[in-house]
Design a protein around this nucleic acid. Structure first.
Lengths: 234, 234
DNA sequence: TTTGACCTATTTGTAGTACAAATATATAAA
DNA sequence: TTTATATATTTGTACTACAAATAGGTCAAA
């Protein structure tokens, strides 16, 4: 039916056609699509090809399929595709740098919502997290401890999307810290020697003082190792 | 081979197995995977099923396939899956709100990089964009004009990932502005009457003055309609 | 009439075969 | 050694077949 030009396969085309079908028929979550054989006839492609395309859309969460019931349009899980594509070992250094830049931007920007929403109760929760971490010692924090504080920040800010987004990106940062340990270690050492480390306790103090600008400056310095990583030449 | 429990299909399982294979064999972009028939034998699934899974990974950009050459691991386009899942009409209001929150956070947070990188040349470019828009009149701006300024900001900040991310999210915001016009119109009207509109010219002034904190406050107010949208009850 | 058990037809899920198209590799020719 | 040709391999597409699930209808009993 369609030329096999430049690596595009029939399934690619069919996938696009199905998305177009949803758009042009203004289908919404809950609506049903034609079944596989109908699409096969409509698009002149074998059922195999239709299924390959459907399989993709199914993975992204745009559709659900059930025997006899057929194919149903659903609200996609926005980040499922992003999550699957995020294999740290497949990412180039440059991509990782850009993700770190996004992380920094988000942590600074989300302060806007953090300081809007933060309550006394939230502060109590944060204090519990921080005090536990101080008991452990800032150098002995596990990955989970490190994540706990930031996750709580996102929770307070109340944006589930950003929360998920960061949760997905986080393994990449952990991978980087291990993979580029020779870069991160000296930086942390230097920060420690100069007494420039901004820990969660410091950040919390700005929250308690309701000092948004101060917090934004501090979180930027809290993420100093990432900042330096994404500025490094290779 | 595997139980068909709770809606998970064989292709889902195979997809996971292939990703595991890449991980466990520590494959990197350029390395080749076993061909379809080998996976078929290894996993005890028909070639059809293998192809469905491969088709997904191909779509996400994790692999490339060429006849005879076989299947090659590649660096994924991080946002391709995200982009495809982002059909505005399929998104719930809640999801859109969260995306607006992310937009606001990013625009505030990226100032960190913007003010680090901005040069006299950049300012000249921004001045050209702004003066052209003032000539048109702030109320007659096309979508393209509106995007132009912000895109330039991201360019100066130098984060391709955020740039792409915003480009992908933007249609959702445009869709929302049309779809919820009855919400946005009165807000814009009110802002205009109270002379509270912060335009690109105002933002540029903060950039020229190298006033990061001022810019961050201003961009937050520039995005006031979004801010109010994501705070609205329904 | 209503309820509940039971069919039946439809549709997705999986397997397998067949062949076309592209191309890496080997082989033969110059 | 280089170039042209042949071969074998692997993906891309089509088609058939059947299993499994189930929506919707049928029929019998209360």
């Amino acid at each position: 039916m369609i030329n096999n030009l430049s690596g595009t396969t029939l399934a690619d085309h069919v996938e696009e056609e199905i998305i177009q079908y949803i758009k042009s028929h203004d289908l919404h979550p809950g609506d049903t699509l034609p079944n596989e054989m109908e699409f096969s006839r409509m698009l002149g492609a074998s059922r195999n090809v239709i299924r390959e395309a459907m399989s993709r859309l199914r993975m992204l969460g745009l559709i659900q399929t059930r025997t006899k019931r057929g194919i149903i349009v659903t609200e996609p899980g926005l980040l499922t595709g992003f999550k699957k594509a995020l294999e740290p070992r497949l990412l180039s250094v440059n991509t990782i740098k850009q993700m770190m830049g996004m992380r920094i931007s988000l942590e600074i920007g989300i302060a806007e919502f953090l300081f809007e929403n933060v309550s006394e109760n939230h502060i109590l929760e944060l204090e519990m997290i921080v005090s536990r971490q101080q008991a452990i010692g800032i150098n002995n924090l596990s990955v989970e401890d490190e994540v706990l504080f930031h996750t709580k920040i996102y929770e307070i800010a109340g944006n589930e999307f950003i929360l998920q987004f960061n949760a997905i990106m986080h393994p990449v940062f952990e991978f980087s810290k291990h993979n580029y340990e020779s870069f991160f270690k000296p930086i942390n050492q230097k920060l420690q020697e100069n007494n420039e480390i901004i820990g969660h306790a410091d950040l919390l103090q700005f929250i308690i003082n309701r000092d948004k600008e101060g917090y934004q400056k501090a979180i930027r310095r809290h993420l100093q190792p990432y900042w330096e990583f994404l500025h490094k030449e290779d």
